[in-house]
C-alpha cells in the first residue's frame, strides 16, 4: 500500500484550523486515507478525513506522521496531502 511520511509544519500542530483544512482535503481526494504517528502500528491508523480523529492524534509542530492510502489515485492523493501537512497553515 502506498505510504508517505510528512512533518507537521503548522505552528499550532494538527489542531483547530489546520486540522479542519486537512480533514476536508483528505475527504475530497476520492480514496480513503489513514494517518498515524510514525512508529505506531498500522492497525492504530486513524481516518484522515475525521477532524475528531486528527484532534485525538495530537500531532504537534515537528511531529512526523505516516499517511497511507490504497486504490486508484492513491499516490497523487498522498502527494497533495503531504504538501498540505508540510505547509504552515496557521500563517495563511
Amino acid at each position: 500500500m502506498p505510504e508517505r511520511i510528512a512533518t507537521i509544519a503548522s505552528r499550532s500542530g494538527l489542531h483547530a484550523r489546520p486540522a479542519a483544512l486537512f480533514a476536508e482535503a483528505a475527504g475530497d481526494v476520492g480514496v480513503e486515507v489513514t494517518i498515524a504517528m510514525q512508529g505506531d502500528p498500522e492497525d492504530d491508523a486513524l481516518d484522515a478525513s475525521s477532524i475528531l480523529s486528527l484532534m485525538t492524534l495530537g500531532a504537534a509542530k515537528g511531529d512526523v506522521v505516516v499517511l497511507r492510502a490504497a486504490g486508484d489515485g492513491a499516490d497523487a492523493a498522498l502527494d497533495s496531502l503531504v504538501k498540505l501537512l508540510e505547509t504552515d497553515l496557521d500563517a495563511e
Partner: peptide, 16 residues
C-alpha cells in the same frame, strides 16, 4: 468562520 467550518466537519465526522 473557522469555528463554524470545523463544527460543520464534526457533523459528518466518521468517528462520530
Amino acid at each position: 468562520k473557522a469555528v463554524l467550518e470545523a463544527t460543520a466537519l464534526m457533523a459528518k465526522d466518521t468517528m462520530l
